[in-house]
Design a binder for these strands. Structure first.
Lengths: 143, 143
DNA sequence: CTAAATTCCTATCTTGTCAATAGGTAATTT
DNA sequence: AAATTACCTATTGACAAGATAGGAATTTAG
């Protein structure tokens, strides 16, 4: 598959946090239970979200995690691009990839570049707020 | 990256065959030399293209491979969907995946399904003919 | 009929990532 | 002081990517 469980779970965590935004800091244990995902595994995932400024955590009793921006201001792209290790169309377009000497004559490069843009644009259209409200069938897409 | 070298190389093979369509059956050796890719590796890749009815090969002297349909009638999607082992948004949507009991309440499922459609639609817009003509900068997208 | 060319088939190898588990340390509150 | 919680580091098993290698089967040319 294209999006790993890491990305999928990260999104579910973000949505869960959005759905319990009134509770302040939410312990990961609760998220893990509600989502039916191993807490230990989620730790590794949420670490990425913390490092990239999407959520913040505080330790100790009454600690937990909370979103750092409004759910309406966080897109699926923000989350996926941070959790998926190399979310680029092809290796040639990965950051740090060696310069390809065929680039000038490559018949497929423009398509891959377009695809990269499309990824950004597609997932940028879904916000955490929109996704969090999808439970009973409304569309998650913002109008 | 999202599309493996297998998919990328397959596309380049198809484009190369389209560019030498006048020559009848084209030996893989020539394709490999022109493209700068190991012939042995290409063998494994073109096998998939043969099995899926995109090209046909005949053995012996003067043998080689040729496209089975018009370049204008083959899309990038046709090629990629056959060479990439699991070109689906997420594991839940892979053929043969176990039924997910969260499907009914899954906040992200609709987005993944949309993404699957988008993949098909995006790569379906690029034909081998269009890509084969991109060498000197015209757009590969059909109007 | 033989030799060359070519596809086709099977097996192996290395490397890396995913997906997950485990055991602990540091900080905070009650 | 004890409980809670985030944070850190290491390890494991399974699997796919990305090749490489050697040979068997088929066809044509001479």
């Amino acid at each position: 598959m294209i999006v790993s469980t890491k990305g999928r779970y990260a999104l579910r965590v973000m949505i869960d946090l959005a759905q319990h935004i009134e509770d302040g800091y939410v312990p990961l244990k609760e998220v893990a239970e509600r989502q039916g995902i191993s807490e230990k595994y989620l730790e590794a995932i949420i670490k990425l979200l913390v490092e990239n400024g999407l959520v913040s955590g505080i330790r100790g009793k009454n600690g937990g995690y909370k979103l750092l921006r409004e759910p309406s201001d966080i897109t699926a792209w923000d989350v996926i691009s941070v959790t998926e290790s190399d979310f680029n169309a092809v290796a040639c377009l990965s950051p740090g990839a060696p310069v390809c000497d065929r680039a000038r004559i490559c018949a497929t490069l423009p398509m891959w570049m377009d695809f990269n843009e499309e990824l950004k644009s597609f997932f940028g259209r879904y916000t955490i707020e929109g996704l969090a409200g999808t439970a009973s069938g409304e569309t998650a897409l913002q109008k």
